[in-house]
Design a protein around this nucleic acid. Structure first.
Lengths: 147, 147
DNA sequence: AAATAATAGTTGCATTTTGCAATAGTTTTG
DNA sequence: CAAAACTATTGCAAAATGCAACTATTATTT
């Protein structure tokens, strides 16, 4: 069937994309003396500015306990500050320290640079189409989300 | 600059895609009583039919020792068979057992089904464009590969 | 041909990552 | 006010991982 073979093609492309991006991610990581998990957490904290542990765990799809420890490591290395939320003292508010923020900016800048290079390598006439296609694909994944 | 903001958009889409696919992968895993690493190995072995440890390690980007153990576990659970390569007895030829092969087919079938659903959720007129865009993006990543 | 180097794979550590379950502290609900 | 719900942390235990040391085999060098 036509549909099946095209779907296979999609799967294979996505698979390759995943692999290439994984390699890219590892490469970017190695420079900054943080583990991958720490880096992911750092970036999410930086983006959120201020976030609770449980929210962060949802974002990263990790167990609370795992994340509690990761955050702990980031606190110990001076990247992150923890404080009790005065409104609801069950919550801990997590935010970047000045040093963590500068590390965050560094990572963001590296990643952006990387994607500028990738984007620039897309032929001029195709760029809009590629961006649009990714949106369409994302929506399709969402729509097909059943289990 | 236009380029930068479009590149950011690309980065964000790719990021979302990665996350969604990761969740998908975990979901598919949970059913089959294999760890993620075992499943990845199983699929690569199934695709290759017959492969040496070192080649498999390269494919999966893992250390030989890590993979040796993973393969060992797969052998112990009856999924994989190990044999000495008669031509060069340094090599071990790794292949799926009948049971491993049926597990492999099951996983492949699940994944294919998943991607058929995704593909079907792409509007009819956009499908070809999405596939083409992924090819273009993959090529752009390859071309921009410097470090 | 013997000695040396190179290769494939395994195993012994040590470290890191991870999740589940139990716990402590806080707030909300009945 | 008591019970339930919620957030976060910590105690396990299991799994994943890499480096280095080691064995076994083949290729290369002299």
């Amino acid at each position: 069937m036509e549909l099946e073979s095209k779907a296979s093609e999609l799967r294979e492309s996505v698979r390759l994309l995943e692999r290439k991006l994984g390699i890219l991610e590892d490469g970017e990581m190695s420079c900054c003396s943080l583990t991958l998990a720490q880096c992911h957490a750092l970036v999410e904290i930086g983006r959120a500015k201020c976030i609770s542990l449980i929210e962060l765990a949802k974002l990263l799809d990790l167990d609370n306990s795992t994340l509690s420890r990761t955050v702990n490591n980031l606190v110990n290395s001076g990247m992150v500050e923890r404080a009790l939320d005065p409104n609801d003292r069950r919550y801990v508010t997590i935010r970047l320290s000045p040093e963590g923020d500068s590390r965050f900016r560094e990572i963001e800048s590296n990643m952006n640079e990387y994607f500028i290079r990738i984007f620039a390598a897309i032929p001029d006439g195709e760029r809009t189409g590629v961006l649009k296609s990714l949106q369409i694909l994302l929506k399709a994944i969402e729509d097909s989300d059943c289990c």
